[in-house]
Nucleic acid binder design. Structure first.
Lengths: 217, 217
DNA sequence: GACAGCATGTAATGAGTTACATGATTAA
DNA sequence: TTAATCATGTAACTCATTACATGCTGTC
C-alpha cells in the first residue's frame, strides 16, 4: 500500500462518521459522491479491503444465515491519515464531460445529432436539479443524513445546484441557437457565433452581460 | 478492437480535420480537450495505434535523422465510425472534482485546510478564465485554430467560460463564508448554512436569487 | 415454491497513469 | 560543447469497470 487514492479518502471519510458494512459504503458512495466523484460499486469492496490491509480500517465479520458480512470501522491511524490528506492541496480540477467532446466534433455530424446531445444534457441537468431540490428540502427540514455537517454541506449544495443550473441553462440556450440553423455548416453563422464568444464571461467581472445591449451586429 | 472509447473519437475528430503526427495529436488533445476530457500524453500514442490496427486511421512513416516518425490520417471507415458515434446519445454527464470531496470531508480537518482548498480552486478557475480569454480573443481576431468551426466552438466557449466563472465565484463566496468562522465545528453556523441552502437554485427558475431580500432569519 | 429484489462479493479485463529512455534541435 | 527543450515513443503498473455468481428475504 504505497499511496491512497482520492477514492480511498472518500471511503475513510464516510467511516469517520460511524462503522458501515461494505454494502452500505457502496450505497453511500453512490448517494454522497456520485455527482462529483463517481465510482463503480465493486471498487468499494476492493478498496476497503486495501484499507484494512494497511491498517486504516478494521473489519468485523458477522453472519447472516450462512453468509458472512463485514462491518468496517476506522482506526486511529485511519483518522490521522484522513486529517493529513485534508491538509494537502487538491490535485484534480476539471470536468469530464462527454457531451462537450461531442460539441467539439459536431461539425462532422448532423445538426440533429447536436440537438440530441444538447437535449440529453438538459434532461440530465434537470434530473440533477430535482435531486438537489430533494437534498435541500431534507436539510431544511432537518433530517438530512449529513445534517450534523450542514455548515460545510451547504457549500457543496451551493456548488452542485449552481452547476446543474448552469448546465441546464447552457443546454437550453444552445438548443435555441442550433434550432435556428438549417444545417451544421458554418455558412451564415459566424457573426452570431462571434457575438456569443464576445459576450461570454471573462476574467473581469461582467455583472450583467447578456442583458439588452444595442444591436450593433 | 471491440469498441472505441470517447478518447478514440476525440482523436478521430482531430484527424478528421487533417493529418497529424502522434506528437501533434498529443499536443492537440491537451490544448483542445484538457478542460473537459483530460488524458495522459502517452495514452495518445497507444490509442492511435489501436485505431490504426482497426483500420480507422492509417500511419505513414517518415524519418527525422535516424529517428522514425509516424503521421496519421483518417480513413473513410474512420470518418464513418465518427459520424455513427455522433448520432448516439452521450453517456457520461458529470464532474470529477477532488476539491468537492475535500469539502464533503472538511468537518474532519481544520478550517485552514478548507480555506486552502477553496483558494486553490479559485486560483485554478482564474487560470481557466485567463485561458478562455485568450481563446476568445483568438476567435474574435479570426486566427483561432478552430476558426472554421466557430459556430459550434462558440457553444463550447460559452460553457467553459460560464463554468470557470461559476467555479471562481463559488470559491470566492465560500471563502468569504468560511473566513467568518473561528473553527470547523458546527456550533453557531446552522442558520447561515440553511439560508444558503434555501437560496441555492432549484428546478424552478430563480432569476434574481441572492439579490437583496428582507432578512427574516 | 417461485420469483423479484436486496445483499455480498469475485474474476476478468481494460483504460489510463507515471516513470523511464533516448534522439534531435537550438541557444548560450 | 554543453544544457535545455522539443520530439517520439515503451514498460510497468494500477485504478476502475463490466460481467458474473450466489445467498438471503419478502411476497404473491
Amino acid at each position: 500500500m504505497s499511496t491512497l487514492t482520492t477514492t480511498s479518502y472518500a471511503l475513510l471519510g464516510q467511516l469517520a462518521y460511524r462503522p458501515w458494512t461494505a454494502y452500505e459504503l457502496a450505497k453511500g458512495m453512490a448517494w454522497n459522491f456520485d455527482y462529483f466523484w463517481p465510482r463503480a460499486r465493486s471498487l468499494v469492496y476492493a478498496e476497503v479491503k486495501r484499507l484494512a490491509d494497511a491498517g486504516f480500517v478494521k473489519g468485523e465479520m458477522s453472519f447472516v444465515g450462512a453468509r458472512s458480512r463485514t462491518t468496517y470501522s476506522i482506526t486511529s491511524e485511519g483518522m490521522q491519515a484522513l486529517r493529513q490528506w485534508l491538509a494537502t492541496p487538491p490535485t484534480v480540477f476539471g470536468l469530464e464531460m462527454e457531451a462537450l467532446v461531442r460539441v467539439w466534433l459536431a461539425g462532422f455530424g448532423r445538426r440533429e445529432d447536436l440537438l440530441q446531445t444538447l437535449a440529453h444534457t438538459q434532461a440530465e441537468a434537470e434530473k440533477m436539479l430535482r435531486v438537489a431540490d430533494e437534498v435541500r428540502a431534507a436539510y431544511l427540514e432537518g433530517h438530512a443524513p449529513g445534517q450534523s455537517h450542514v455548515h460545510v454541506r451547504a457549500l457543496l449544495v451551493d456548488f452542485l445546484s449552481s452547476y446543474a443550473q448552469l448546465a441546464r441553462d447552457w443546454a437550453a440556450r444552445s438548443q435555441a441557437s442550433v434550432a435556428r440553423w438549417r444545417d451544421i455548416d458554418r455558412a451564415g453563422k459566424e457573426s452570431a457565433a462571434l457575438r456569443k464568444i464576445r459576450d461570454a464571461p471573462g476574467l473581469a467581472a461582467h455583472p450583467d452581460r447578456r442583458s439588452k445591449r444595442p444591436r450593433t451586429g
